[in-house]
Design a binder for these strands. Structure first.
Lengths: 91, 91
DNA sequence: CGGTATCCACATTGATACTG
DNA sequence: CAGTATCAATGTGGATACCG
């Protein structure tokens, strides 16, 4: 969710966003989030990409919570990074 | 954490706060949270109580995140209740 | 009152290999 | 590129009984 909020929309981007998440876990999470109505998957318009993942309306509403958690982490847990100031614009 | 934020400070209160949480889980979570520096336990000054649990400084800083999550739940998930407007004052 | 001790079920993560 | 399949390890939650 954090990565979807801040620019990633392709599977490969999520996979290499620094988490080191395995492919099966990522795919499982995306599936769960999609079933929960938080993430939407659509065919990609981009050249080398097949799908675009984006947050649904309900998912976008979680942005403040994600941000609050990230800020807490950054202030209380060493080695965690702050979030970008703005969610990246949709293309 | 939610219950600690909104008035509960005794084990029994947390146990009967509507979650239906078993004693072993509650105690385990309190232990974890204490080790994580989010919750503090101290001897109670109250008559029939032995301990008081309260959020540490770091724990209190999670309040906005807890609130944001609760608000999301209340707006998106049927049957979840909103949070009180204010955290209850310390006695 | 505030916990432990068991025991079990299920969820979650992860590494790794493979596929259309 | 975007996944699935497999297997093992660990985490998490829950019911229930018991304890000082």
């Amino acid at each position: 969710m954090r990565d979807l909020l801040f620019g990633s929309s392709r599977y490969g981007e999520l996979l290499n966003s620094g988490e080191g998440i395995p492919t099966n876990i990522l795919s499982q999470r995306l599936k769960h989030l999609e079933q929960a109505g938080i993430v939407e998957r659509q065919d990609s318009t981009q050249p080398r990409s097949r799908y675009d993942y984006r947050l649904s309306e309900a998912g976008l509403k979680l942005a403040p919570a994600v941000r609050a958690l990230a800020e807490w982490g950054h202030s209380e847990i060493a080695g965690t990074r702050p979030l970008p100031l703005q969610a990246r614009r949709r293309k």
